[in-house]
């Protein structure tokens, strides 16, 4: 069931909570406790804005177990405004043409389901950024 492994990262999955390095101020996602830039300890929580742009993307027609129902789906590497890259699905695409550099924003969606009696795993996906109201 892997309940604890999903529960453990709920702050990341639901709210894009990463870390900021107290020494060099690098923003870190996913959290890793040791700053990849300067090597110092970095355990200070940091809330990412959820805004970014598409670094690269692909659409899959062959899915691994647990994702068959989503085929075809589009995955992306998103460059967050604060610096880090994050791997996630793109969603709410409608007829939108995806492009490298396209602005996107984080939303919460169902990531996978482990069968009828299995868990539903929720977390971040990214959609084309809506026009500011």
């Amino acid at each position: 069931m892997e309940v604890s492994s999903h529960w453990r990262v709920k702050q990341q999955r639901y709210a894009l909570i990463g870390e900021v390095c107290p020494s060099c101020e690098a923003k870190i996602f996913p959290p890793r406790d040791v700053c990849p830039e300067c090597g110092d300890e970095a355990k200070t929580h940091y809330q990412f804005s959820g805004l970014g742009e598409v670094y690269s993307y692909t659409t899959l027609y062959d899915a691994p177990q647990g994702h068959e129902a989503q085929i075809p789906y589009t995955l992306a590497l998103v460059r967050l405004e604060e610096g880090p890259l994050v791997t996630a699905q793109l969603t709410d695409l409608d007829d939108e043409n995806i492009e490298v550099g396209m602005p996107v924003e984080m939303v919460t969606r169902k990531l996978r389901s482990d069968g009828e009696r299995g868990m539903l795993v929720y977390g971040y996906k990214f959609r084309p950024r809506l026009q500011a109201a």
């Binding site: 990341q12 691994p64 647990g66 994702h67 995955l75 791997t87 990531l111």
Partner: peptide, 10 residues
């Protein structure tokens, strides 16, 4: 597993 595969990454 936590930050790639869970999103359906192959």
């Amino acid at each position: 597993a936590d930050f790639e595969s869970v999103h359906g990454v192959t």
